[in-house]
């Protein structure tokens, strides 16, 4: 998996999103690596904790974000630059990542995933002794 621990794969519509009959978007993602972990920031404006579904299955991390339908009174669209809908994206996770310790949190429409590296994958300093 050439260097990076994750590989992007654009997924097709799942049954869940098709049922709602809404648009599905691929959210924008930032991937940052630190010494101990990989951090993903996934931009999903309009999604909160209740609309979020993060799954890990067979080394594939699936993110599904649902936007609550707009229940406001009849309004006339005057100008539209974006449409609302669900967000979906999948990532292949390599063995470098400790699957048991993955943590997710969402704040202000951005999902943050922390994927800690296995102890064996972390860089180690080898002490040099004087012979």
């Amino acid at each position: 998996m050439s260097g990076t621990a994750m590989q992007k794969s654009e997924s097709q519509l799942s049954e869940q999103t098709q049922a709602v009959n809404q648009h599905t978007f691929t959210p924008k993602v930032d991937i940052w690596e630190t010494q101990d972990s990989y951090n993903l920031d996934v931009e999903m404006p309009g999604v909160d904790k209740n609309g979020l579904d993060v799954k890990l299955e067979d080394g594939v991390l699936s993110i599904l974000g649902r936007v609550a339908p707009d229940n406001t009174v009849a309004c006339e669209k005057v100008h539209s630059e974006y449409e609302t809908g669900n967000y979906e994206r999948q990532f292949h996770i390599s063995e470098v990542i400790d699957e048991e310790k993955i943590q997710a949190s969402i704040k202000n429409g951005v999902l943050n995933l922390e994927l800690p590296k296995r102890e064996s994958a972390k860089p180690k300093r080898i002490e040099v002794k004087v012979g």
Binding site: V73, Y82, N108
Partner: peptide
């Protein structure tokens, strides 16, 4: 930021997508 503007009888509503802001 992307902006949507809509209008009801009582108000003008402007929505802007600004994920991850403070």
């Amino acid at each position: 930021p992307k902006v949507n503007v809509s209008e009801t009888r009582k108000e003008i509503r402007i929505e802007a997508e600004l994920p991850g802001m403070n």
